[in-house]
Each structure stands twice: as structure tokens, then as C-alpha cells.
């Protein structure tokens, strides 16, 4: 799958090519003119691009981002997307998320619990894509609870961290269980390991069913 409009591979002076978007720098990432480096090792979504997953993004979409943390990934998303709603539960990283949101008129930061979508459904409009990267038990249930935001033809881009569900069991077994729960509301298009960018993480692409 090709990259969405607004994401390019650029060299940043070295031999290697990196993903990059255009926008205000956020976390001290290297820049080249208006382009700033998007490091797939620091971003599950970036890793999903690098692994060539069928993300379905073309650029300009309306996005709901769950688990925005300090805003590293969501800032890149907002660089290429339309209205971008960033939900983060913890106050400390949300402080940094605000810094990313300030210069981006299309990035809306919300200090909310992704497990309780009714606390932000009065703010968030229906979206073309949900990006989810929450490190909590019940990752599939978070995706199911937020299904109401996804348009009929929209996509769920999910980073699954089996360690957050159960530290002891085999990651693959935990993943299967997550996928099974997920299939109550989603049709799963693709699942891939995010190695070598993220150990023991999986990328999942799904649509509504």
C-alpha cells in the first residue's frame, strides 16, 4: 500500500530514508525544511506504514486517535489528516499533547478515558479512521466501545500490545483472543507483527461489520 498524501520518504542528510510529514516540530525530531522525521520505532502507526499494511489512508481523513500519549504520532497524523481528535487518559503526557495541538488548528486534544466514549461523543464527530494505541487491559473492548464513531466504510488501525493484556502468556495466544473479541464488531482485514520496530506488538487493520 502506498503512503498517504503528505507522508514522504526523505533522507535527512544521511543514507537512510525516513518517513516524514510537514509541520511544526513537536518532540525534538530532526527536520529538513518544513519536513520532520517520523520515526517508526517511536510510532506504531509509522511502523504499520513501514510494514506495508493496508492502512487505507489517503490524507485528509477525519481521525479519532485513542491513546495519543504525548502526541508524537498524532502530531504526524494531524499533519496529513483533516480534523483529528486525540484522546489521552493520563494528565502528564497530555501536557505535551497540548504543545503539539496548539500550533495545529485541526488537532483537538481531549483528556478523556477511551473506555468511556460517552464522555466525548458530544465533541467528536463520525470519523473515517480510528487509530488506537492504548496500553491497557481490554484493548479489544476499547475498540468495540469506540466503534460508534467509525463511518460505515471507515477503518480501524489498531496497535495491539499483548503484554498489556497478560504479561505471562504467549503474545500470539493473547493476540488471537484480542482478535476474537474484536470480530464481534469488526471485520479484520490484516494482522502483522510490528517487528523490528516494536517488539511484541502487532498491527491490525479492520473495518466495521
Amino acid at each position: 500500500m502506498s503512503l498517504p498524501d503528505g507522508v514522504e520518504r526523505r533522507s535527512f542528510g544521511g543514507d537512510d530514508e525516513w518517513l516524514a510529514t510537514r509541520g511544526e516540530p513537536v518532540y525534538g525530531e530532526p527536520t529538513d525544511g518544513e519536513w520532520r522525521r517520523w520515526d517508526a520505532r517511536r510510532s506504531k502507526l509509522g511502523a504499520m506504514f513501514e510494514r506495508g499494511m493496508e492502512h487505507g489512508l489517503e490524507g485528509g481523513e477525519t481521525v479519532l486517535y485513542l491513546g495519543a500519549a504525548a502526541g508524537t504520532t498524532v502530531s504526524h497524523v494531524a499533519d496529513i489528516a483533516g480534523p483529528t481528535y486525540a484522546v489521552e487518559f493520563a494528565a502528564r503526557p497530555a501536557r505535551d499533547l497540548l504543545e503539539a495541538a496548539e500550533p495545529r488548528p485541526n488537532l483537538f486534544a481531549l483528556l478523556k478515558d477511551a473506555r468511556s466514549p460517552e464522555t466525548y461523543a458530544h465533541v467528536v464527530e463520525p470519523v473515517d479512521a480510528i487509530v488506537q494505541d492504548v496500553a491497557t487491559r481490554g484493548q479489544a473492548n476499547v475498540a468495540l466501545a469506540n466503534r460508534r464513531f467509525l463511518r460505515e466504510d471507515g477503518r480501524l488501525l489498531l496497535a495491539v500490545k499483548p503484554r498489556s493484556e497478560d504479561v505471562v502468556r504467549e503474545p500470539e495466544a493473547v493476540l488471537d483472543e484480542v482478535l476474537e473479541t474484536l470480530s464481534e464488531g469488526y471485520a479484520i482485514l490484516e494482522t502483522r507483527s510490528l517487528e523490528p520496530f516494536h517488539e511484541d506488538h502487532f498491527g491490525v487493520v479492520a473495518t466495521r461489520r
Binding site: P83, A91, R92, A94, R95, L97, L98, A101, E102, P105, N106, L107, F108, A109, L110, L111, V123
Partner: peptide, 21 residues
């Protein structure tokens, strides 16, 4: 609308972060 939403979410989240911290 988005301009108003941007301003409102920035303020709401800043207040909430401040209170929590």
C-alpha cells in the same frame, strides 16, 4: 466551528491537566 472547537479543547484539556497535576 473548528476554530472554536480548537480553542475550547485546548482550554478544557489545559484546565483538566492542571487540576489533575
Amino acid at each position: 466551528y473548528y476554530e472554536a472547537l480548537h480553542e475550547a479543547t485546548l482550554r478544557a484539556t489545559r484546565e483538566a491537566v492542571h487540576e489533575a497535576e
